[in-house]
Nucleic acid binder design. Structure first.
Lengths: 365, 365
DNA sequence: CTGTTAGCGCATTCAA
DNA sequence: TTGAATGCGCTAACAG
């Protein structure tokens, strides 16, 4: 490419190796520095020169080489996003929020999934070094703060969803504890006492908070039954299975708290298949407020989590971190709103309650 | 950083500017080339030297700088993925498929959304130049083939979902036409004649194929009603609205074909809210087979689209394109499987059919 | 097996 | 307002 010493006229075919800044400089009859200046919008260029350079660049379909530029200015204008996995509405919502803010700041986004593994998270993050200016991190599970700190490779980092021990730095997260407590309490307030819980993935920090909230509220409620926890993994399939399992002896339970909406929906369909009336016989609540939650029948009570908002906030914070005024460590916590809908209507207002359930609920109130 | 001339002992704190390859070379008492060799696993290094270099690298938390490496070898080990937008299961499924293959090949993934705009797709792609080795492209709408070609910036590209005119190059897509025809025919075979269609976004290539399939099958069916197309945009909300609209005069329609599942689900919930029996009074089919489709009640008939599979295939093809044997232009078309479920059960087997519908359906068969 | 040398494409002093 | 020179961190011949 471009070893000629004269100024060729024909624009390079765009499928071929592209012109470099030197070629443009030569064609335009200026120095490389000048081309670099117009590239970066420097004011110290004579308008005519600038125009000529511009024209030549267009004629040759010139594009600056990002890697070279990165190396020169030690900045890639790219942010790395490391996530536990790539699944469903949660992932897409997060990415949408991140992308919206990144685009505004003309930043690129490099996504990497840890595939649920801490080791992979570490590896992938290291291989990002030199390719990104900052990091948005969400680990599949809690780790030692030193370990977490080491994983950033010294890059400016905003942690999402969950503090790792006493880890310093900037955090953005969604509180699960409070709304999960409220949801459990809401079921109790509705006259439910025999509440089952469908858990999320083991070691997942959100799932864990939700479970703990459920357990703690039950513990404070003397006339509630012993906790009943069914295994789930956040998939509708696992919710469906849990629902079927509960249908074997539906009388033993009058409410179900699923750790996320997809499982709640799977569970709902299992219950309906078995002819169990929701919320008449069994109340049901989820977590996340996925778009479909309000459309199902009965509409699903849940906690409205603004994942996109959190992603956007994380990106904003990171951008500030990269700027001249990084500021102190921050910790932004998003509070979900409770979306009380039909699936958790109180027993005395529910329809089609069978006598036994009704009696028991009244007895215990 | 690293201007010393001797060999310091203390490992650099990882929060500080990191050591470069030169520093490591100096500390290890070898040349930069040797360090580079162990970095790239060259066999031409004496084991002892390699071990020593390895140790020094670890002690200093050395990480090679990706941008520098990119520049040196003119390869970034990164793939750019340009998508029309970042929404829902479709996006996450696609990314999951892409990521799975990319990870195997130790490639990074840079995502960029065009936010529905062709202009933005062009801009973002250009700004990716020098940062990526290849491109996975999915445009928000069909464009002129030259235009499309120009947008690649000469980068090896695999096009996803939809050929732009006579554009050459590698394509991977999912056929919507055939399954959409089959779904329409399936409704007719089930005794339905008054079939409405809920459309997707204007100019979307998939949505367009599905609509055309619906129209063409109806045109071939002399005793079917005139096409009735309601506007939608692929969101459950728009499906819900369309469903409500249809409920105003439910007798006028005995089947609904929604251009995707989310709209079908929104529509289903609107119908149920209005007390319309599905599939008794109205049959319903969607497209995509989102995870939830099989769990709703009645389970949704749809076309099973393997987006993750398509994404993975696109990535595989691109990897080949980047290798020593790029091969000829290819065109892989994925055929969705029809998932016939309860929501489209034939009229004579449906339950709770009202007399009027039953009569009409029989008359027309 | 190892070191020396010369880039990769661009940004950025420092002079002019 | 411009150009020449130097360097970013690493790779890749080539010579030893």
């Amino acid at each position: 490419m471009s070893n000629g010493t004269e100024r060729p006229a024909a624009p390079a075919p765009i499928t071929t190796a592209r012109a470099s800044i030197r070629d443009i400089a030569r064609y335009a009859g200026v120095s490389v520095a000048t081309v670099s200046r117009v590239l970066n919008g420097s004011a110290l260029v004579k308008p005519e020169s600038a125009a000529r350079v511009q024209r030549i660049m267009e004629e040759h379909h010139y594009l600056p080489h990002a890697a070279a530029r990165s190396l020169g200015r030690m900045r890639s204008e790219t942010i790395g996003v490391v996530l536990p996995d790539i699944h469903g509405e949660y992932f897409s919502g997060l990415m949408r929020g991140i992308d919206a803010v990144a685009r505004e700041a003309r930043l690129h986004v490099l996504v990497a999934s840890a595939h649920g593994s801490l080791r992979e998270a570490r590896e992938v993050t290291q291989s990002l070094y030199g390719r990104i200016d900052g990091l948005l991190m969400m680990l599949p599970e809690a780790v030692d703060p030193n370990e977490a700190q080491a994983m950033t490779c010294g890059l400016p980092t905003v942690w999402m969803n969950g503090r790792h021990g006493a880890l310093e730095g900037c955090h953005v997260s969604i509180d699960s504890l409070t709304p999960a407590r409220k949801l459990t309490q809401h079921l109790i307030d509705g006259g439910r006492r025999r509440i089952a819980f469908i858990s999320g993935p083991r070691r997942n920090m959100d799932a864990d908070q939700r479970l703990r909230a459920y357990l703690s509220v039950l513990a404070e409620q003397p006339d509630a039954m012993e906790p009943l926890v069914l295994d789930g993994d956040f998939s509708e399939e696992s919710g469906y299975q849990a629902g079927r399992q509960l249908c074997v002896q539906p009388q033993s339970v009058d409410a179900i708290f699923a750790a996320n909406d997809m499982m709640a929906l799977g569970c709902l369909f299992a219950l309906q298949e078995a002819g169990v009336d929701v919320p008449g016989q069994v109340a049901l609540v989820g977590f996340d407020d996925v778009p479909i939650a309000r459309y199902v029948n009965p509409a699903l009570t849940t906690a409205g989590v603004d994942v996109a908002g959190m992603g956007g906030k994380a990106m904003s914070r990171l951008i500030q971190l990269l700027g001249p005024e990084p500021g102190e460590a921050t910790d932004d916590v998003f509070q979900p709103n409770l979306m009380i809908r039909t699936s958790s209507a109180a027993v005395n207002t529910g329809q089609g309650i069978n006598a036994e359930n009704k009696r028991r609920a009244s007895d215990q109130r």
